[in-house]
Design a binder for these strands. Structure first.
Lengths: 194, 194
DNA sequence: CGTCTGTGAGACAGTATGTATCGAAGAGAA
DNA sequence: TTCTCTTCGATACATACTGTCTCACAGACG
């Protein structure tokens, strides 16, 4: 279809279209992202949008993919600090007005769309493995009780879950003290002196 | 517009349309719920759908409203049992394949639609007040430490949040032992012997 | 039985969608 | 620069969809 991915003209119109698609998604929901609206907003031809994305699903998912990079990542520094930092980063991103629209769209599409499901898993899939490793290292260092490394996913759920609940279902702004309190509560059962 | 709400013919076509709308929402997402598709699925005339719901938003939200009754309610029996029971009920409802589509749609719409926001608050708004009362009663009985009643919403977030996270972002089936574990973890800081 | 009123079917104009074509202009090589 | 290739925006076009209206019909109710 297109000669290549490296033609500056193609890259330019593609980038403009994706930026426009994200804007339109946040402003009016997924059904607001059509070939016509994207073309108009991006200042490019309607046919050009069809050339890049023959169907609307692909266009929307490409736009989503640009905004949904992995949300968490861990290394081997002290676990509590990492969790607080990462959860704060995530809270900051969730506080963006666009985040709810984008995440809710991914979740909704994932029910019926394989590509969206892949995208959804990309968000937290890596986090489980990384955190498992980080927890194992922490157990070695005596920061946590043995066995903790088997509960990485559970920890993530107990920290991120309440954040999502507050943000998605109550629409509140996520504050730092909530994040800290959630991390400590989730970690409490695994502290060695317990 | 319509003479009344009690004409059996109007009630019948209205009910058929709402049932069809919910089906179509679950099958193909919100953009699949149009006057035309609903009319066809419900076996009624397209004009009839327009008569009941002049715009598509109203139709979709009416369908959602039928499926999103309050999700939690509390009385004055022992708190832990109540929380476990209510959270199990909720988990059971979230396990329905349709629940994710419906909830995600409400959340998404709530970003831009006043009516959807009202609907979203209906789900958990009452729960906070009820649980606050139930917690106060439990404190009176010595089940929980004084001050607990000020943290009803926090408790809900720490129990429901992880459930939503597991169901929405990992697509897993919610099991009873997870529910119990979440309730006990959320309650732990407020037990009197701590 | 007679009068309402909601209904389904269809007609209709206006709009949106998807595709094809065309000349213009940017990109890259000689 | 000049030449060639590719993408571009604009436009035209057929088709599908939307929203509104009309009308004959049948169910509801007295």
């Amino acid at each position: 279809m297109l000669r290549s991915n490296d033609d500056p003209r193609a890259l330019r119109s593609r980038a403009a279209a994706l930026a426009a698609a994200t804007e339109l998604l946040v402003e009016g929901g997924p059904e607001n992202v059509t070939h016509a609206t994207v073309a108009k907003r991006a200042g490019i031809g309607r046919a050009t949008v069809y050339r890049h994305w023959p169907d609307q699903q692909a266009l929307l998912l490409d736009a989503l993919a640009g905004d949904v990079r992995p949300l968490l990542s861990f290394d081997d520094s002290p676990v509590r600090d990492q969790l607080v930092f990462q959860a704060e980063q995530l809270a900051h991103r969730l506080n963006q007005p666009s985040a709810v629209s984008i995440l809710a769209t991914v979740i909704q599409r994932a029910e019926r769309d394989e590509e969206a499901r892949r995208l959804r898993e990309e968000m937290f899939g890596q986090a489980d493995e990384d955190l498992t490793r980080a927890l194992a290292a922490a157990v070695e260092r005596g920061e946590l009780r043995p066995g903790t490394q088997g509960h990485a996913r559970d920890l993530v759920a107990r920290i991120i879950g309440p954040l999502l609940f507050e943000r998605f279902l109550h629409g509140v702004h996520l504050e730092k003290d909530l994040v800290v309190s959630l991390v400590d509560a989730a970690l409490a059962p695994w502290l060695p002196n317990a």
